[in-house]
Computed example of a mutant assay.
Amino acid sequence: MADEEGKGGSVPVIIAMKGHPGTGKTTLARSLASTLKIPLIDKDDVRDSTLTLQEAGVSSSLLNDMSYGAIWQLASTQLRLGLSVVVDSPLSRRAHLDRLLQIATSGGARLVVVECRPADEDEWRRRLERRGGGEDEDEASWHKPSTWREMERLLESYDGCTDYDAGNVPKVVVDTTAGVAVHELVYSVVEFIKTHTTLQS
Rank of each mutant, 00 (worst) to 15 (best):
L79I: 08
K144F: 06
S84W: 02
S84Y: 03
R30A: 03
R125I: 01
A104G: 15
D120Q: 00
R94E: 15
V114S: 06
T177A: 06
A75S: 15
R131T: 11
T27H: 07
A178M: 09
A56V: 02
T147V: 06
D165N: 15
D175W: 12
M1E: 10
A56K: 09
E152S: 07
R126A: 07
T176N: 09
R126P: 06
A75V: 06
G9D: 12
S141E: 00
K171W: 00
T23L: 02
A104P: 03
L53T: 00
C116A: 14
E135C: 05
E121V: 13
T195L: 13
H183E: 14
G24R: 05
L91T: 14
C161P: 00
R80L: 13
G179I: 09
E184I: 08
D42Q: 12
L154P: 06
T27Y: 08
L97I: 10
M151R: 10
W142C: 08
T35S: 14
E115N: 01
L79R: 05
S157I: 07
L128P: 05
P21F: 03
T52Q: 10
L101T: 14
P90N: 13
E4W: 12
G107D: 04
L74M: 15
R130M: 13
K43W: 05
I15K: 04
P145F: 03
R110A: 07
L91E: 05
I14S: 08
L128T: 09
A119G: 15
P145Y: 07
D44T: 01
Q78V: 04
L185Q: 14
T35D: 02
Q78M: 14
V186R: 01
K18L: 01
Q78K: 13
L40A: 04
P170C: 07
R130L: 11
S76Q: 15
L28R: 03
G108I: 02
R127Q: 08
